[in-house]
């Protein structure tokens, strides 16, 4: 099964679809592991939004590609190098601070991207962006509230949040190294960078958290299918059944 994406718009959209899917899977890992029941339910909600968003985006991609593949084929039959999510979202749930920091750094980025997709020429993308923006708003408020609580809560929570931010920031740099595809399908890529930096800087400063200088890292680009070590494990769990029983229908 050759699932190589041919169309340029589909190549751009699959970055967003994969990013949603992988983050949804990471959040699903939190189910029954939340700090208390209400928060457990909230994380499942956000995870469900992300899976739903990914599925709708894969449908649009399959339609554009028109080769008869389904969203499930794209999810369950591609290998690591064929996945194009940002590395940030595949980082593990080391503790609740990681979950929240990852979500917050993602939500600001994602919110601005979907805002710009409201200007897309593809009406299905516009429709999806309208729906997604409502969901992200909620997720953003949720993650930002927690950044505040943990940053300003106790000495321990501040230290844990700082550690999570320090680690995750190194996976953010690549997001803003926009290529021609990004520049074609987003209306203002510089705007994504500016919005993200302004919000992160202001929020961290207000929550007694530092934004440390990150030395430039030699890390290959997610746009070329490069990942951290975590993705292989995540996929091997997620894809186990369809890979082990290729003839079965589920």
């Amino acid at each position: 099964m050759d699932l190589t994406i041919q169309n340029n718009e589909a190549k751009f959209l699959i970055r967003l679809a994969d990013t949603s899917l992988i983050l949804g899977q990471r959040l699903a890992e939190m189910c029954s592991n939340g700090p208390f029941l209400e928060e457990d339910i909230a994380l499942s909600n956000i995870s469900l939004d992300l899976f739903g968003r990914a599925e709708e985006m894969y449908k649009i991609i399959c339609e554009i590609e028109g080769n008869g593949y389904t969203p499930d084929d794209l999810v369950f039959r591609r290998n690591e190098r064929e996945y194009f999510n940002i590395k940030l979202v595949e980082q593990p749930n080391e503790d609740f601070a990681w979950v929240i920091a990852r979500q917050f750094l993602h939500d600001i980025y994602s919110q601005e991207v979907y805002k710009q997709l409201l200007n897309s020429d593809n009406s299905e993308v516009v429709g999806l962006a309208q729906k997604v923006l409502k969901e992200i708003r909620y997720s953003y408020i949720h993650s930002k509230d927690w950044i505040e609580r943990l940053g300003l809560g106790t000495e321990e929570s501040n230290a844990r949040m700082q550690k999570a931010i320090d680690h995750l920031l190194k996976y953010v740099e690549e997001i803003f190294a926009f290529d021609e595809l990004d520049k074609t399908y987003l209306s203002d890529t510089d705007g994504v960078t500016t919005v993200w930096n302004n919000d992160v800087n202001a929020t961290l400063a207000a929550c007694n958290l530092q934004r440390k200088e990150i030395m430039p890292l030699t890390m290959r680009d997610y746009r070329d299918g490069f990942h951290s070590e975590h993705i292989g494990h995540l996929l091997s769990i997620m894809q186990y059944l369809p890979r082990a029983y290729p003839d079965a229908k589920w």
Partner: peptide, 10 residues
């Protein structure tokens, strides 16, 4: 985490 389709996962 091992649900075999997007639908069954959701």
């Amino acid at each position: 985490l091992r649900a075999p389709s997007l639908r069954s996962k959701q």
